[in-house]
């Protein structure tokens, strides 16, 4: 049969063990938030998930001194102008809340 050991003796033993093995002494098991500091940072790996794609507008914006033209974009803008001339452009944006309500009712 095990001999009775007082709780204060057990606590002292635990404290001594903590100092010996360099672990933190936390008798009440309080949350210290250490896990948020211990965890690895996830951001750097997250940013690299999507592979870089060849983006023409971005490159043109980056190297403005090349004075190159994005043909597809130019053609699209010309098409939009043509459509506007024929009265087939996008509808006007509502300027106020009241106007917006009127436009939605018509639909």
């Amino acid at each position: 049969m095990a001999a009775f050991v007082s709780p204060s003796r057990v606590a002292a033993l635990t404290k001594l063990r903590c100092s010996l093995f360099e672990t933190s002494y936390n008798p009440q098991n309080l949350r210290t938030g250490a896990k948020y500091l211990r965890r690895r940072l996830r951001g750097p790996a997250m940013v690299g998930y999507y592979p870089d794609k060849f983006n023409i507008p971005q490159i043109l914006r980056q190297y403005k001194e090349l004075e190159m033209v994005d043909d597809a974009e130019e053609e699209r803008l010309i098409d939009v102008m043509d459509r506007k001339k024929r009265g087939k452009g996008a509808p006007k944006k509502a300027k106020s809340a009241e106007e917006s309500r009127r436009l939605t009712k018509k639909r």
Partner: peptide
């Protein structure tokens, strides 16, 4: 996808500050 990329960059930029606040907020001592 563009929104997701934005979120990824936001997470990376704010991760350390968020962790610091989390540490303080969850620390019962």
């Amino acid at each position: 996808v563009i929104r997701d990329i934005k979120a990824r960059h936001g997470v990376r930029a704010n991760e350390i500050a968020r962790r610091a606040y989390l540490f303080v907020a969850r620390n019962e001592t």
